[in-house]
Design a protein around this nucleic acid. Structure first.
Length: 556
RNA sequence: UCCCCCUUAGUGUAACGGUUAGCACAUAACUCUCUGAAAGUUACGGUCGUGGUUCGAAUCCACGAGGGGGAACCA
């Protein structure tokens, strides 16, 4: 990866610096541990950039580990999409792709050890009874009648659980900690449950599965993880994370550190809500370009570089935050500005006839592909007497600060000539149907003409242009924080989040474009070719509009 | 009602007892421009409150206020 810019420091990197200085660790080892039960989103991207970024900067390692301890929720489909998304973001785990389920044998042995040390017991209460004995936030829990079973009996029952002698729910294995703890997670948490389900990785080998709280610290320890980074909601689980490592007397222990998850304005980030949007057809799928998923952003035209830069800018801290989506948008613009080829595309066409230009003539106008990058070269654009311009680039009665085309006024056609509007043609309803203009042959682009006018607009030659479909996206929700609103988030969807334009004209150069290709449509925004494109019709997605100070002036 | 965590401009972050409290985004204005883009310049704007410790506090302490989290055989 060609990343030279250093990622800003944060409290986690400071902890790592201290651990290195004190020689607690010499090699830093992190992990990104998604549960394969859904698609990754921009919030996961923050975690991925954090974990893999730390490994990169400290010459350490970062594992990809699937936290797959609940077979009924997980699926191989998700495993594959997660691998693809992490790789697309630009990170690599070499040969260190693991599953928590790879450790089921060792986890089982650890559990046996806990039983032998009187640190765990089999409880045969129902889940209802378990819940009742748990106590409340203000009252201590009750000791289970099964809490003092002998080691022998516990061992026999746990073996039986493993061998499938009991039905789901008949028994659970619990850690023996403290039913009076003010931390509910320490009140003898369940660590194994019976689930006669097929696991995507281990098949039918197991019918008991470890719980997250138990599997996670031990998986970290098995992999030699030094710093186990997770989000704030696991803070309260940390004493339990440490308890297992203590109880099993493990050396070289990993340390769990929590940070605030990413929230972005005008979208939702919870897997549940995202799933509902997909299932209820409120979006076209996980990769709908309006979704905050990695695959959605990819289809929208975001680049891995821009997302990595965004993650760096957002930073890492412990306080809950709501990041302005404008920061994400700025990050793509910045990247695309440097790399995207400039092309001309007219989204809402208005026909312009240049009356003093021969109707059988075509000129090839030369233009630069990217003023920010000379190495991208130049290309030719055909010019003729009938062109299309953007409807909004003409005002019959111009706003006082408007300096594009209006009756009797001149404007420059980018990379071509200066034209003057001589006549406005309307239909019987008063709608403007076309404009008649004259051009000044002395003002050809690159000819050294000294004449300059205030405005420059984009255009395409009508007879050479290619028709295309362009999809304009806006924020998915109308409020900044739809998740916190009293209303159901569905009621807060932005009805104008997708605007499909079917009568757009693009310069012929673009007919060669392939899925994923990215362009700047001059003066309108950054666009990429959607996978829906086929031989008959190119479909473009607007990644993000260009910053626009004109509409602000116009509104004043 | 109990426990844990958090609190710096509009937003996201930096400061590690000593700086005019820095940076980015956003906002506004100007310059420049064959993209009303980009770029450049400038402006705007902040330590939750009250006490205390100290020569000195955003930083340490206490209390208060506000926000978040916590009782799944989920992760």
């Amino acid at each position: 990866m060609e990343e030279n810019k250093s990622t800003p420091s944060n409290f986690i990197r400071e902890i790592i610096d201290e651990d290195l200085k004190s020689k607690k660790h010499s090699l830093i080892h992190t992990r990104f541990p998604p549960e394969p039960n859904g698609y990754l989103h921009i919030g996961h991207a923050k975690s991925i950039c954090l974990n893999f970024g730390i490994a990169r900067d400290y010459n350490g390692m970062c594992n990809l580990r699937f936290d797959d301890t609940n077979p009924v929720k997980e699926d191989i489909e998700y495993v594959e999409s997660i691998e693809e998304d992490v790789r697309w973001l630009g990170f690599d785990w070499d040969d260190r792709m693991f599953y928590a389920s790879d450790y089921f044998d060792r986890l089982y042995e650890f559990a046996v050890q806990l039983i032998k040390d009187d640190n765990a017991y089999v409880d045969s209460s129902t889940s209802q009874e378990l819940r009742e004995m748990k106590g409340t936030l203000t009252e201590a829990g009750a000791l289970s009648p099964y809490r003092n079973r002998s080691v022998e009996e516990n061992l026999e029952l746990f073996t039986g659980m493993k061998e499938g002698k009991y039905e789901d729910g008949a028994h659970v294995l619990r850690a023996k900690i403290d039913m009076a703890s003010t931390n509910m997670h320490m009140r003898d948490p369940v660590i194994y449950r019976i689930k006669k389900a097929t696991h995507h990785n281990t098949g039918d080998k197991w019918c008991i599965y470890p719980m997250y709280d138990y599997a996670h610290p031990l998986s970290d320890w098995i992999e030699g993880i030094t710093h186990s980074l997770c989000t704030l909601e696991f803070e309260i689980h940390r004493p339990l994370y440490d308890w297992f490592l203590d109880a099993l007397k493990l050396k070289n222990r990993p340390r769990q550190i929590e940070f605030a998850r990413l929230n972005l304005t005008y979208t939702v980030m919870s897997k549940r809500k995202l799933l509902e949007l997909v299932q209820e057809g409120l979006v076209s799928g996980w990769d709908d370009p309006r979704m905050p998923t990695i695959c959605g952003l990819r289809r929208r035209g975001y680049t891995p570089e821009s997302i990595r830069n965004f993650a760096d800018r957002v930073g890492v801290a412990k306080r809950d935050a709501m990041t302005d989506v404008a920061l994400l948008e700025h990050s793509v613009r910045e990247d695309l500005n440097k790399h995207a080829m400039r092309v001309m595309a007219v989204l809402r066409p208005l026909k312009v006839v240049i009356t003093n230009y021969p109707d059988d003539k075509t000129e090839e106008m030369e233009t630069t592909n990217n003023p920010e990058d000379e190495t991208m070269g130049t290309r030719k654009i055909p010019f003729s007497n009938v062109i299309y311009i953007e409807r909004e680039d003409f005002q019959e009665v111009p706003h006082k600060k408007f300096h594009r085309l209006s009756p009797g006024n001149e404007v420059r056609l980018k990379s071509a000539y200066i034209i003057k509007c001589t006549e406005v043609i309307k239909d019987d309803k008063g709608e403007i149907t076309e404009l008649h203009c004259t051009y000044d042959p002395e003002t050809k682009s690159g000819s050294g003409s000294m004449r300059s006018v205030k405005g420059t607009i984009h255009w395409v030659s009508a007879k050479h242009a290619v028709k295309a479909e362009v999809r304009l996206y806006d924020r998915l929700f109308v409020t900044e924080d739809p998740a916190s609103d009293d209303k159901d988030f569905r009621e807060l969807l932005n009805p104008h989040s997708l605007d499909i334009l079917k009568e757009c004209y693009i310069e012929p150069e673009l007919s060669k474009a392939k899925t994923g290709d990215k362009f700047q449509f001059i003066r309108t925004g950054y666009f990429c070719v959607d996978p829906l494109s086929n031989d008959e019709m190119l479909v473009f997605n607007r990644t993000v509009a260009l910053k626009d100070s004109w509409t602000k002036i116009d509104k004043k």
